[in-house]
C-alpha cells in the first residue's frame, strides 16, 4: 500500500524541481486542450520554439517582452519579501510612463542627460502612484491588495484622458497618443534596447541588497514575522513604506523604458498587462528577486509564443488561459512538494 505523507521542510532543489515539473505539466495540459480544439500541437510548439530562439529577430522580440516583465516581476517580488502584495504594477507602470513622457517632452537636451533624468522621473511616478496605498498600509493597516489594484484603473483612465486631451498629438489621426518623445534608449541588438540591461542590473542589485545589508535583513525579518521585527527593534513601518515605494518605482521604471525603448509615445494599452503578469512572474519566482529572471524569461516565451500562435488562429484568451494554467499548476505543485510517497508494509493479519 502506498500513501502520501507530509514532510516538515523541503530542500530548495525540490522547490525548483516541482516548479519545472509544474510548468511542463501545464504546457502538456494546455497542449491537450489545443489538440482537442483541432490544432496541430507539435507543429505549433515547434514554431513557438523556432520563432523565439531560432532567429535573431525572435530573440530580440523575446528580450523586448522579458525586460518589462523582469521589472514588474521584481516590483511584485520585493513586496512579497516583506509580506505584502503589490497588485498595482499596471498603474505604477503607467504612472512611470506619464512622468517620463512629461519630462521628456518638456525639457530639451541630449540623450545622456535626459535618459537618466527620465529614469528618475519614471521611478518617482511609480512611487507616487503607490504612495497612498503605502501610507494606508503602514499607518491604518488598510489592505494594500485592494488599494493598489483599484489605482490601476485610475492610472489607465488618466492615460486615456491625457492622450485624448492635454497631451494629444493632433497629427496622430488613428490612435490618440502624445507627441513623440525625442529621446531613445540605445540599442543592444536590432530592436532590442538596453532596457534589458537596466532590468537585469536592478534585479541583481536588489538581490544583493536584500541578502547582504542590514536593511535587507530587516525587510526579510519583517516579511517573515512583523511582530518579531517590531520586538527586535526594527523600524517596521518605515521599511514597509520604503519597500512599497521602491516597488512602485521599479514598476514605474518599466513604464519609462517602454516609452524610451519601444513605443516613444504615451498612449493607452502600452503596458500589455505587464503589471498583472509581473505578479505572476513574482509568484513563479517564489518571491525571490533572483528567481524573477528565469520566471520572466518563461513568461516571455509564453507571450512570444502567444503572438506566434495568434498567427495560426489561436486567440489571445487561449494564451492567457495557458498562463493561468501555469500559475495553477505551480500553486498545486507548491503544496504537493511537501508530500512524499511512502510504502507501507502489509499488515500481518
Amino acid at each position: 500500500m502506498m500513501r502520501f505523507q507530509r514532510v516538515a521542510s523541503i530542500s530548495p532543489l525540490i522547490i525548483v524541481a516541482t516548479r519545472v515539473i509544474a510548468v511542463v505539466a501545464a504546457l502538456l495540459v494546455g497542449g491537450l486542450g489545443f489538440a482537442i480544439a483541432g490544432f496541430d500541437v507539435p507543429m505549433l510548439a515547434g514554431n513557438v520554439v523556432t520563432s523565439s530562439f531560432g532567429t535573431e529577430f525572435g530573440l530580440e522580440d523575446l528580450g523586448l517582452l522579458v525586460s518589462p516583465l523582469i521589472l514588474t516581476g521584481l516590483a511584485a517580488a520585493v513586496t512579497l519579501r516583506i509580506g505584502l502584495w503589490n497588485i498595482g504594477g499596471e498603474g505604477q507602470f503607467y504612472a512611470g510612463a506619464i512622468a517620463a513622457t512629461v519630462v521628456g517632452l518638456s525639457i530639451q537636451s541630449n540623450d545622456v542627460v535626459m535618459l537618466p533624468l527620465m529614469l528618475v522621473a519614471g521611478f518617482m511616478g511609480g512611487a507616487v502612484w503607490i504612495l497612498i496605498p503605502a501610507l494606508a498600509r503602514a499607518y491604518l493597516a488598510i489592505d494594500e491588495i485592494i488599494t493598489t489594484l483599484l489605482l490601476n484603473f485610475v492610472a489607465i483612465l488618466l492615460v486615456n484622458y491625457l492622450c485624448t486631451g492635454p497631451m494629444r498629438d493632433p497629427q496622430q489621426a488613428v490612435q490618440s497618443a502624445s507627441d513623440r518623445v525625442p529621446y531613445e534608449m540605445p540599442e543592444l541588438s536590432g530592436d532590442l534596447h538596453w532596457g534589458i540591461g537596466v532590468a537585469v542590473g536592478m534585479t541583481l542589485i536588489l538581490a544583493i541588497v536584500l541578502a547582504f545589508t542590514g536593511w535587507g535583513y530587516e525587510v526579510r525579518v519583517a516579511g517573515a514575522n512583523r511582530h518579531a521585527a517590531h520586538y527586535a527593534g526594527m523600524p517596521v513601518r518605515r521599511r514597509l513604506m520604503q519597500v512599497m515605494l521602491l516597488s512602485g518605482g521599479i514598476a514605474g521604471v518599466a513604464g519609462m523604458l517602454e516609452i524610451v525603448g519601444t513605443v516613444h509615445r504615451l498612449q493607452g494599452g502600452i503596458s500589455n498587462n505587464f503589471g498583472y503578469l509581473g505578479v505572476m512572474v513574482a509568484v513563479l519566482a517564489g518571491g525571490l528577486p533572483i528567481g524573477v529572471l528565469p520566471a520572466a524569461l518563461l513568461m516571455g516565451i509564453i507571450l512570444n509564443g502567444g503572438i506566434v500562435l495568434q498567427a495560426y488562429g489561436v486567440s489571445t484568451y487561449e494564451v492567457l488561459a495557458l498562463t493561468g494554467l501555469v500559475l495553477l499548476f505551480i500553486a498545486v505543485g507548491e503544496q504537493l512538494a511537501y508530500y512524499r510517497l511512502v510504502r507501507l508494509r502489509p499488515v500481518a493479519q
Binding site: 526579510r220 525579518v221 517573515a224 514575522n225 511582530h227 518579531a228 517590531h230 520586538y231
Partner: peptide, 9 residues
C-alpha cells in the same frame, strides 16, 4: 513563535 522568532527563517 509569535513575537520572539521568525519561524520560517
Amino acid at each position: 513563535l509569535r513575537s520572539g522568532l521568525a519561524p520560517s527563517m
